[in-house]
Design a protein around this nucleic acid. Structure first.
Lengths: 178, 178, 178, 178
DNA sequence: TATGAATGAGTATTCATTCAT
DNA sequence: TATGAATGAATACTCATTCAT
């Protein structure tokens, strides 16, 4: 939702660049070169910098988009299935986790981060109301576990079965216990 | 434990460099320059490269030492307190988590990684025998949770209380449940 | 005085751009970006390049206009007051001096330069006839002194009083001496 | 006179680089690329930046050396012949004038600039004592005239004879007048 | 004719690594 | 063996200029 609507071609390039950047940083980590992003997007380097004046801006834009997507996804999940979904995404896209965790996320993207927190809070409250999750836990530790698991999934190369068993441990920890 | 024993001064330099590198990478992340490591170690850059022909080698050496330390620490802990210990270390030293998680850890340091796995396996078996941990869980998910929490601690800036609540969720998930 | 008369709006843009360029280069020096000129003129970058196909052309056009203005001013001055006027302008507008001095001025703007020379020659002749200036000096050194003082004023940041004392030395040098 | 004496090879390179830089900037102006300086000096680009961490530092170093040379030269001249000498140098080396005039000279090289001012002051005082220069003029205007003439010589492409006639005007202006 | 997005060569600077002293 | 100067590839970013809309 850009403040000034872009020309059609500019908008198309913006998207292309974001897509390419997401892929490149997912594959090669955040030290990948902007030149590589341009190459993969099929545009000249200047075009990348016209859209994102700084590499940091480019990274921030990716984060923003990813977080917004997660927030949108939250609507179709309960807390546990949202965990599964996010962790699966993280395993696939390096960036999800890297960026979820970016130290300065709150600094650079306070709104986007807050939205995600809100979405998870809703899921948590619902889950607690329905008795699926113990009322002992609060939002911060739930967010922290989500982030941790993403990071783990990212670096760990877990297979499907293992991922499941890991999440089961955490879910058990979140359920009400006598 | 070098195969050919080093001259005393060379050995001293090796240690100095490792110490400096640990500190530098902990502070500035793995993109910190080798030059900075040399400066902090009080040796010339050439000396660093004589001992560790590659930056990767230097990073690997740090990992190896850190893992060895963790293995040694394992002896004085039960599974839960070991979790607490490792996570606390990770929060303090960027490197612990970064390196625990390094994708190519198994590839580059297969032995060191195996040793840590063995140590955790011992703790796990003991914990299961004593009934502290459910016999449902197996080593891989325990390792994965440990790694995930380290990563989370690293990037999350958790305070003491939050860290405690997070671990409680996981511990509950690991305990036997009716 | 374009050879083909411009449409009214095009002419207006041309002037706007020249005004903006003069201001921008005066403030930021000749390394200021053409984009900044466009911004300040309130036109798109393409418009600047349509009117002045090259940055050099834009600079040349400014020079031309400035020189023409100086020539016009000459009519209202004697040699000494003209010196004062030009030097004061130079102190105010970086460009006057920079451009007066541009190495390729004669090459790129032979006519405009010749006109200025003519104007100064008239002033000089008049001054010599009236006995205000020694008949020993000739046009080239007078022009050279004028250019030098402009350059000096430009870079020197002279205050009013100093500027006066500097000019006094030169004027004394130009006056008839027993 | 570096604080820490350099290794012989490093010192040799430092000089080479300064020489090359002086030539390059003289020819192509201060926008010439550092790469060109390296090429002309016969060293790799990294070497230039090891010696002068910033392009500004390199320019400052040239200035410093040039100013020091001028100060040294002052000892062998009276005021008028010093003027001649400096102006002749400026005509030959773009840099002398450019740098003499550098807006931030006082900011970046206060000592070097002060030394030159001192040297000229000595020459001026002597000239005034001997009656060669009027006691009306003071140091600031003398410095300003020197700088202006350098700038003029730099950009003007004056031939020998013209240079002489220009200086004669200024010298006449400086002499005692009835 | 005006717009402003796209191009791409060019520039300062960094840093792992090599090698002469 | 240690030193630290030299190397040079790599990288983020700029800006004059072109061209599709």
């Amino acid at each position: 939702m850009p403040e000034v609507p872009l020309r059609a071609d500019a908008a198309r390039n913006r998207t292309r660049i974001l897509d390419a950047a997401e892929a490149v940083f997912a594959e090669l980590g955040p030290t990948a070169s902007t030149e590589e992003v341009a190459r993969r997007a099929g545009v000249a380097i200047g075009t990348v910098f016209r859209h994102f004046p700084t590499k940091k801006d480019l990274l921030a834009a990716i984060m923003k988009r990813l977080l917004a997507q997660l927030v949108a996804d939250a609507g179709e999940h309960d807390l546990f299935s949202f965990f599964r979904h996010v962790v699966a995404e993280a395993a696939a896209k390096k960036t999800v986790a890297d960026l979820l965790a970016a130290a300065d996320l709150d600094i650079r993207l306070p709104e986007a981060a807050a939205h995600l927190r809100d979405a998870v809070e809703t899921l948590l409250t619902t889950a607690q109301s329905s008795g699926a999750v113990t009322s002992d836990v609060r939002l911060p530790e739930v967010m922290a576990l989500l982030v941790s698991l993403c990071q783990g999934a990212l670096h760990g190369g877990w297979d499907q079965a293992l991922q499941s068993r890991i999440l089961d441990v955490v879910f058990t920890g979140l359920r009400p216990h006598s």
